[in-house]
Amino acid sequence: MMAIKTAPLFVLFAAILWGTTGTAQAFAPAAAHPIAIGAARLVVGGVFLLLVALLLGKLNIKGWPIGPTLLAALSMACYQPLFFSAVNQTGVAVGTVIAIGSAPILSGLLEAIFFRRRPSSIWWGATALSIIGCVLLFLTGDTVVIKPMGILLALGAGLSFAGYTLVSGQIVKGKGPLETAAVIFGIGGVFLMPFLFLFDMQWILQPRGIAVSLHLGIIATASAYFLFSKGLQQVPASSAVSLSLAEPFTAAILGVVLVGEELNLLSWVGIGMLLGGIILLSSASIRSEPA
């Protein structure tokens, strides 16, 4: 059985893999629409997880919680179009900050409402530090576009991720992490398949399209969410969502190193605050569990 102390590290590793999605999309063919990329990512990831689970004999649908599973799959399926639509309405900076920054707060509220579990003071401090860091990271000096519909879409994306984390965290305690991720993403992929017929998908047959789709589906989705589900066996949903703020940190570093993006001083300060909040929360999570 997994050592309890390592659970937060699985969540962190998952977030680091998620952080590669932006860089991978930057190398996608120009004709690839962001929503189509998101749909392909979930479909490829879901199919891969189901195949692995079947090959390893880890897929047992007996006694499966249908209601929570459908809710988790719907939450993950909604996240992709909500997030990319929010970014389209408000711009990358505002849409990303609101979606990613609101998720930990919404997750903490959902946990308090449905499970009467109040986040610790360390969680509040580390989450606040990370969210402020996230805001500074995307404070590039560009013109900020505030559109009410875009804000609502971004909040919907944050709520979708928080809801997925909360529900799947309950499912994974009765089922294995591979089994949980396979079923949820398999169904989520079915929900998003219609998007594959709404956009021109010829880009996916190009060498770069194949490479990007496989990376996003297998590495940034299947592997990442397997690790995330494994971590959720021990880490509370609110802490897991806060630890997932390692995603924008990773994305920023990869953007500088691989894509050649430039960050201003405030962005580097934001990276430092993000890293500080993540270290504080992960250290507290590890220390709070018995050896």
Rank of each mutant, 00 (worst) to 15 (best):
D200G: 06
E261R: 15
V235Y: 11
T6R: 14
V259H: 08
G255N: 13
I218A: 12
V241L: 01
A77I: 13
V87C: 09
F84P: 10
T180K: 05
L258N: 06
I113G: 09
L214S: 03
V87Q: 06
T250I: 00
A220P: 05
S283E: 11
L55F: 14
L281F: 10
T20C: 12
I253V: 15
I131E: 06
A40Q: 08
L49A: 12
A157M: 04
W124F: 12
I16G: 01
L178R: 01
G91P: 13
R117Q: 13
L243T: 06
L17Y: 00
K5C: 02
T96Q: 08
Q206T: 15
W64A: 06
D142N: 11
A103W: 01
A39F: 03
F199L: 05
L245M: 01
A103T: 01
V172M: 09
G158F: 02
L232T: 03
E247M: 00
G277E: 02
G63A: 12
F13I: 15
I105S: 12
G95D: 08
L12I: 11
G133A: 03
P65E: 09
I66G: 07
L153N: 05
G67D: 07
S102Y: 10
Q206P: 07
F249H: 03
I113H: 11
A30R: 14
L71S: 07
A24I: 06
V94S: 14
A291D: 14
T180Q: 01
K62T: 13
P119M: 08
K173D: 05
F27Y: 15
L70W: 12
F27C: 06
L232Y: 07
A93M: 10
W64T: 09
L275N: 07
G101S: 14
P8Q: 08
L59S: 13
W268F: 14
W64M: 10
S282N: 04
L42R: 10
S285V: 01
Q170R: 15
E247K: 01
A240C: 06
R287W: 08
F10A: 14
L152D: 03
R41N: 03
I105H: 13
G276L: 00
P194H: 05
G260S: 10
C134W: 05
I105V: 15
V256N: 00
Y225A: 10
I35P: 03
M273A: 15
L137M: 06
L12W: 02
L198V: 12
S229Q: 15
R41A: 03
A284Y: 10
L110G: 13
L51D: 11
P81A: 13
S285L: 00
K147F: 04
L280F: 03
S120F: 04
K173S: 07
Q25P: 00
Q25C: 00
W268Y: 14
L280R: 01
G63W: 12
N88E: 15
W18N: 02
Q233I: 05
I187L: 04
L166M: 10
H33L: 14
F226V: 04
L12D: 01
L258F: 08
P104Y: 10
